[in-house]
Design a protein around this nucleic acid. Structure first.
Lengths: 363, 363
DNA sequence: TTCGAAAATGTCACCGGTGTCAATCCTAAT
DNA sequence: ATTAGGATTGACACCGGTGACATTTTCGAA
């Protein structure tokens, strides 16, 4: 394939002379090179890059051809500087469960693949008083295109407020709205809790306990409320002494389950607010000498990989975490596309029945 | 505190007029503002920011004072553009174990905290033929300051070669050197394998099996070699039919263990090349009706969180993964500091004895 | 006191894009 | 043919720093 012959239209900018059969140095061309070769101003090239509708089709095609030929890629840093907005998507998280975080990451990366955006990690410690300030300064400095906030960061009202003030877009992943309006991926945690309750009730359990997360998490209440609702439908109630907090952690789950088992009338079934705590419950139950599921049934929540790795495998409520991450990123990017941005996408949980639940044995 | 009175030295650049008692807009000042207030050229300010030694102490102090007063922070994008080098550290990974990845991430973030660098995730699929090209284009576009390569990406010789060509710094986390010299965090996987072997031998086991990772991973061979070496010291040998591949995955571990147990003379103890496979072995062993550790002892490798969550808890070989991630990032950043960059940091594994191993029961 | 080299500091273009607004090109209506 | 008004395109400054090199200080040695 021949290039045009104009003697001036030669090589991409920097007059690097390279010996003989050099591999085409794709990718190092700049917008100026493209403009020169296409015989238009760099501004027009810029318009094409940014898909401005105000470029004649013919011009656009010509420029695109040059871009392809040169393997031109706009420089993210330069663009960021000029626009005062980088191509970074920040994942701001503070979640006790690594599995959860990894899956969210994967989902986001799925959605970001092929775009110009990069995922940067920004863990945050909500127990520190300056956590909001830190995030603000991150935003001021790096000017991320947007943020994704999974729980429990997503439930931080002061943070949401600060974010609305700041110049960032963000998407929350949470089970409930905040007072501050914002775009979000909503999970129907209540339905999940209900599914768990119904499953146990259907199996014939009558004496059921619950290990819940920290009271400061909205999801804790959602899951429990759904659970109690389902029990109520069968005429059951969750007795106060059968509801214990497990902090959403493995260790918390162990302690909580031990507490339950130490009572005069231990439960036949336990619904843990997440898989981590359910895993802890496994340990406590075994230590106490009970069998799963023959003596005690256990249900978890999240369906993290560990659920399938336990023995017997854990019956749990699955949230499509990876898909949620992906949806969150997609939602975030819609602003970029100028598309009519949806405000809310809802995901429903689904109960995955495995080996940790069974009908209670006849006494 | 009063400012100087010169009528011109007023507000930071952009003549935004704000009504009355505005909160001091810290952080939005630019290098020009600093230069003006400090009555020096922006270049000198730049020198201070970059800790150039060629600035008089007095000047430096004055400028630092202004920087502090203004809450000035240099703009990463602008710096990146001018230097042709961004402030991103890329984590290029392709690891079947999410736990591993998360811990590496944490370690890196520990080290990056307080610096100007940000961590960006760059998963990569080594099974795709263009994976090196993709990474190259990532580098060309985003000009990351450096990359961190955990296994198995760290064992990719072609990638290392390409990286040496490209304009990036990188640190490998691996158990062995590559032909291409590079800075690295080395783990003595062989010693870990040996520790596992010694532990089982010391307990009195004589009939021991091994589930190893993919043959394409160097660590697979390292771990196995160390293991066999330790057995040899006790006069034991790993019989060929007692060594099965488990692909470093849970499912692979299940299948491999089933294979071992189906043999006419099943092993008394199993050393799995990582915790994922050990977890799989748990399931297979249970399914086959054996007890852990009474009938069969199991040892893992990595000490990922799941090890402590199993019942009984898994005896395993621990690598300080988080610390390794941190060390890798620190090593990478040393170039920035102009410090004498170390080339190699070695981490030794340590066996963590928990409940999954015991002396074989008298037959 | 004078001079020269080292130490400090400044100048100015440039990194590779985008925003603003003016200039030019078209097309249909007059 | 002429012209108004929208469609295209271009000119130019600017985003906020850094690199290369010039200029000015500074200070000990002559």
């Amino acid at each position: 394939m021949k290039h045009e012959a104009d003697p001036e239209d030669a090589e991409p900018s920097s007059s690097t002379q390279v010996a003989g059969g050099e591999a085409i140095l794709r990718g190092k061309a700049t917008i100026n090179d493209v403009a020169r070769l296409a015989k238009v101003s760099k501004k027009t090239v810029s318009r094409v890059i940014n898909e401005s509708p105000f470029v004649k089709q013919k011009t656009r095609d010509a420029i695109k051809a040059v871009i392809a030929e040169l393997g031109f890629t706009p420089d993210p840093q330069a663009r960021a500087l000029a626009r005062r907005k980088s191509f970074l998507v920040g994942l701001v998280y503070d979640n006790p469960s690594p599995q959860y975080v990894v899956n969210i990451q994967r989902g986001i990366l799925d959605a970001l693949e092929g775009t110009d955006f990069q995922l940067v990690l920004h863990p945050c410690d909500r127990s520190k008083p300056d956590h909001v300030a830190r995030i603000q300064s991150f935003i001021q400095q790096h000017k991320p295109f947007g943020l994704i906030l999974p729980p429990s960061v997503s439930e931080d009202e002061p943070l949401a407020l600060a974010l609305n003030e700041a110049d960032v877009d963000y998407v929350r992943i949470a089970s409930v709205e905040l007072d501050t309006p914002s775009r979000m991926i909503r999970t129907l945690d209540g339905d999940g809790g209900a599914a768990a309750g119904r499953h146990l009730a259907d199996l014939g359990h009558r004496h059921i306990a619950h290990i819940h997360g920290p009271l400061s998490f909205r999801s804790t209440h959602e899951r429990r409320a759904g659970f109690e609702r389902a029990l109520a439908e069968t005429g059951l109630v969750l007795r106060p002494e059968m509801a214990v907090e497990g902090g959403y952690t493995f260790e918390g789950g162990v302690v909580a389950a031990e507490h339950l088992l130490a009572q005069p009338n231990p439960p036949q079934a336990i619904f843990a607010g997440n898989d981590e705590m359910a895993t802890g419950a496994y340990v406590a139950v075994r230590r106490a000498g009970f069998r799963i599921p023959e003596d005690i049934s256990i249900v978890g929540f999240d369906d993290t990989p560990i659920a399938g790795r336990l023995w017997p495998a854990l019956t749990t409520v699955r949230l499509p975490i990876r898909e949620m991450g992906s949806a969150a990123a997609t939602l975030l990017l819609q602003t970029a596309d100028g598309m009519t941005a949806k405000k809310l996408i809802t995901f429903s949980p689904e109960i995955i029945v495995r080996g940790s639940t069974a009908a209670p044995e006849a006494p």
